[in-house]
């Protein structure tokens, strides 16, 4: 079994980095798919999706679930509390007063929505991991990093591809 490598190239010119990605996408390096590519960047690049391809984000579904839970649980919680707390109805109003429950359920919807979004973000976006040997502090400054996992066979081709695109630095590590 051949060795597998993780190769990271750093670019300071973002256009060149995108061009390198574009080359990988168009199979300039046989055996390396765009799905093996990861990017480390100092800023958010919505335009990179054109090159990287659309990758799914599942957070909105969880947010919807959380907010719906807040809505349903909030109402049931309040209603059951009010239904058993009969000291509460005063001055000719119903036992479960909808106007005030709208206000409270609205807040509970947002409360649960917000916390679910936060926890979904923590667990879905690959946080809480070691930065690894390839991590470069320059990424948090002004350079963009392209990480590719490849077999030994493609290793040199990738490196030369990166070099033609004016990569400043190439790091690699062996995996498995």
């Amino acid at each position: 079994m051949s060795k597998r490598y993780r190769i990271k190239a750093l670019f300071s010119d973002f256009e060149e980095a995108f061009a390198a990605l574009s080359d990988i996408r168009h199979s300039k390096v046989p055996g390396v798919s765009i799905d093996d590519v990861k990017l480390n960047s100092p800023i958010e690049h919505p335009e990179i999706e054109e090159v990287l391809g659309e990758r799914p984000v599942h957070i909105p579904k969880l947010t919807l679930a959380g907010a719906t839970f807040g809505l349903v649980f909030g109402f049931l919680f309040l209603a059951s509390a009010q239904a058993t707390f009969l000291v509460q109805p005063q001055g000719g109003k119903p036992v479960i007063p909808l106007p005030s429950n709208f206000v409270l359920v609205y807040e509970m919807l947002i409360f649960f929505g917000v916390w679910t979004t936060f926890f979904a973000f923590l667990f879905m976006s690959g946080l809480f991991r070691k930065r690894g040997n390839l991590y470069s502090e320059k990424v948090s400054l002004d350079q963009i990093g392209v990480i590719v996992e490849a077999d030994e066979a493609q290793r040199d081709k990738l490196k030369s591809l990166f070099k033609t695109h004016k990569s400043l630095e190439i790091r690699e590590e062996e995996i498995q």
Binding site: S80, A83, T84, L86, P89, Q90, G92, P94, V95
Partner: peptide
């Protein structure tokens, strides 16, 4: 028991003001 509470006592509290209020 709260369920019993709901079933037995609720109608008492649903009475309108013209019937003498909730009590």
């Amino acid at each position: 028991m709260s369920l019993q509470n709901i079933l037995e006592n609720w109608s008492k509290y649903r009475r309108g003001a013209e019937e003498g209020g909730h009590h």
